[in-house]
Structure formats: structure tokens, C-alpha cells
Simulated assay, not measured.
Amino acid sequence: MSSFAESSADSHEHPQGACPVTGKTYDFCPRQAGDVRSPCPALNALANHGYLPRDGKNIGVWDLVRGLKNGYQLSTVLACLLSFGAMLLLGQYRCLSLSDLARHNMIEHNASLVHRDDNNGAEYAPTKVDRKLLAALCAEGGKLLPNRITLEDAAHIRVKREAQCGKLDGVHAEIARGEIVIAIGVLGGKDALKNGVNISALHEWMQHERLPTGWRPDHTQGLYQTYKMAKYVRERMREIGAQQPPNKPGEY
């Protein structure tokens, strides 16, 4: 199994030479030529900040666990569940590269909030955030609380996206809810269950795949809290879906 220390830091290079943040713990540096990234802004941000190997390659399961704990202050149980679950779903039990997470319909799925669907039959789905979808996501916020995306907003967003792209199977529906719930829970702070997350912080995190300016984790995001948040979104999605007609094709 690979370890963080064994990852090839030298492969993260710049046209002008060595990476300027090498040796500077957790400073941000965007993806460079030769680096690989996933459809997951959370993991990409961890690589861009050095919580995961900056080149995004040869990542062991315990690298993932440590990165999630150190970067986002997930509980050990939640970090292990996500990390070992990813390895299991991908069928890769030794190590992975972030680009492996783009394999379509493994962990990656259609009806992503910020990525276009993989409709061309390619094995690997797009990893670049679609700015129009990101703008549409952020535009859904602020309706309940000024400048915030709440769990209620998240439920509405997911219903709209799945009405546009088609229903997800049970496993991918849970993954999709978990993605936005963990983003809100981690970036929104200890009161995210009620107050959601700042729209600008979420936008910065997703568009630039970096930790929001001035953000620091103020709580441990655990499995039970995440379960409660996902359960709320799931139930609200059912209620919202039963109350409104489906979107017109292409509407979001």
C-alpha cells in the first residue's frame, strides 16, 4: 500500500521549475501539468493543499483517511467509511489515483450539481466544474437565509437536477445526497444543520478547488450528524418531488 511519504512530490512540477509551496505545509497550489484530479471538489482541494499527494496519484486508503481527518476534521469513523467505501466501489484495494474516481457510474454519477452528465458513453466522466451549473447551484441559495445554502435549499436543488437528468439508482442517490450534505456540514460549521453554508465559501471551494479564504474547521463532522442531515434532505426531496411537476427538458 502506498503511503503519503512515498508519493512522488517531484512529479508535481511547474514550467518554471519546482513547486513554490513545496515544504510549506498545506499551502494552496492549483493542479499543474501531469497532475490528475477527480470529479470531487473535496478531494481535489485536499490535493491542491497538500493533504493528499499533490499530483493526485498512488493514494492509499490510509492517505485518504488522514487527508479527510486533517483537512476537513471528519471523524475517524466517517473518514474510514468514505475511504474504504471508495476503494470497495472502485474495486481497487491497494491504491488509487484521483482520476480513477471519474470512472462513470462507479462512484461518479449523472445529475451532479456541478458537472455535466457523461452522455457520450465514455468510461471517464468530466472532472471540470461546469460554471453554469455552479452558478445555478448558488442561485438556489439565499431563499431561506440570506447568503446561505441550507439543507432545505439542497433538497430543492437535488430534486431539480434529477428531474432534469433522470432519477438515480438507490446507491448513487445516497452518494449524491451525501456529497452536498458533507459539503454543507463541513464548510458551514457546527451550526450548519440549521444555518447551512455561506454561498461565497461554497462557490470558492467548488470553482477553485481550494479551502475557502479564512475558513477553519470548528467541529468534528461525524457519521451520526451526517446521517441526520442526509435523512432530512432525503425526506424533503420526497415531499418536494410529490408536490411539483417535473422540469421541462433542459431546465435547471
Rank of each mutant, 00 (worst) to 15 (best):
H109Q: 03
K228W: 04
P246I: 02
T22P: 01
T76L: 04
A192H: 03
A176Q: 15
V114E: 00
T127Q: 08
F4R: 14
A154T: 12
D153A: 03
I59D: 12
A176Y: 05
L168K: 00
S83G: 05
M237N: 08
K69I: 11
S99E: 14
C165I: 01
F84V: 13
R94C: 11
L211I: 14
L145N: 04
G166I: 00
A111D: 00
V61D: 09
L81F: 05
N110D: 15
K190P: 02
K57R: 15
V77Y: 09
A79N: 02
R148S: 05
C138I: 14
E6D: 14
V65F: 03
L43S: 08
R94S: 13
C165P: 02
A242K: 15
L78G: 14
R161Y: 06
M106L: 03
Y51T: 15
L43E: 05
Y124K: 06
Q207D: 14
R210P: 05
C40A: 12
I175R: 15
G141E: 09
N247D: 01
D118S: 14
G141L: 04
A86K: 07
A111G: 08
M87Y: 10
P246V: 09
D10T: 10
N110M: 07
Y26G: 05
L90M: 10
A136V: 08
L96W: 01
D63M: 03
T213I: 09
K128S: 15
E204Y: 06
T150K: 11
K132Y: 07
R37I: 11
H208G: 08
H172T: 04
A173Y: 06
V129C: 09
P30S: 01
M106Q: 13
L187H: 01
C138P: 07
Q225V: 07
A192N: 04
Q16Y: 08
Q207T: 12
H109M: 06
M206Y: 09
L78Q: 15
A154S: 11
A154P: 09
T22S: 07
A136Q: 14
S2A: 12
T76I: 04
G17D: 08
C19R: 00
C40L: 10
K248R: 15
N195S: 11
D153E: 11
D55T: 05
G178H: 08
R158N: 10
G60R: 02
G91N: 08
Y252T: 15
L202H: 04
L68Y: 13
T127E: 08
L52K: 06
H49F: 02
C29A: 10
S7E: 09
T150W: 00
Y93A: 02
I175F: 12
T150F: 00
K69H: 14
L133W: 00
L193Y: 12
G50E: 02
